[in-house]
Design a protein around this nucleic acid. Structure first.
Length: 218
DNA sequence: AATCCAGACAACCGCTCTAGG
DNA sequence: CCCTAGAGCGGTTGTCTGGAT
């Protein structure tokens, strides 16, 4: 709860404190919100006796003080999920975080920038060429279950240079048991109906259900 | 012991979106 | 519609820490 780092906060031109939060500030913010709720963030700052912007209070609460945050490091399983979701959703960190309970967009973004991105680049698989959101909006899914392989592929229109399609796999594995076969059939029906949101949700659930050692070593 | 440097994380900035007047 | 304030988002910067020299 308490900020263990040194208090580097200093007032800015508008007389608002900036920089790292002190344990006292954390305590004030936490007890105010747990007792009275948020209301508006600018009022929280004032009512909690903080010389911080409402924006700063919101960020501190969302990224650090919220009781439902997971404190443990991001697991291998979650890392795989981040990579997969980034491929599907692009750099929409809040959308990715929404599918990972207890994790924040800031945490995921930092994790991506400091670790995964580097890791992918080392492997020559940097996905910075992920399609823009508008392109993702036009994407469609293909799911191939032939030959006992479950291969889920997202395709998207590349309107900029009018190439018909580019595609990138978000998931591929051997269908080895009954449960996977059912999953494959499920994906297949979703992709045929172009139900992208459900496909992504189902994919997330499936990924989370896998034991850690199943995840590909990216 | 001092310094440097890279990695990790916290926080800020600027922008967009949305709701209400 | 237009304007404004607040909220939220993603990119970027700042700060701290620990390891290497």
């Amino acid at each position: 709860m308490a900020n263990e780092k040194k208090d580097g906060a200093k007032p800015c031109a508008t007389n608002k404190r900036k920089g790292l939060w002190s344990p006292d500030e954390d305590e004030r913010l936490y007890s105010h919100i747990t007792n009275y709720g948020v209301g508006t963030w600018s009022s929280v700052s004032e009512l909690a006796g903080l010389k911080r912007s409402g924006k700063s209070c919101r960020l501190r609460w969302m990224n650090y003080l919220r009781p439902d945050l997971r404190k443990e490091p991001i697991s291998k399983q979650e890392e795989g999920l981040i990579v997969s979701l980034q491929r599907v959703l692009g750099n929409r960190w809040s959308a990715i975080a929404a599918r990972m309970p207890g994790r924040t967009d800031n945490e995921i973004k930092n994790y991506w920038n400091s670790r995964i991105k580097k890791k992918l680049r080392r492997m020559g698989a940097d996905r910075d060429q992920t399609p823009e959101t508008s392109q993702i909006a036009e994407k469609s899914a293909h799911c191939n279950t032939e030959d006992g392989n479950l291969d889920v592929t997202i395709s998207y229109n590349n309107s900029a240079n009018e190439k018909p399609h580019s595609h990138f796999p978000i998931f591929a594995c051997q269908v080895t048991d009954e449960q996977n076969c059912e999953q494959a059939a499920h994906y297949s029906s979703l992709s045929k109906n172009n139900e992208m949101d459900l496909l992504v949700e189902g994919y997330v659930d499936f990924l989370m259900s896998l034991p850690d050692d199943v995840h590909a070593d990216i």
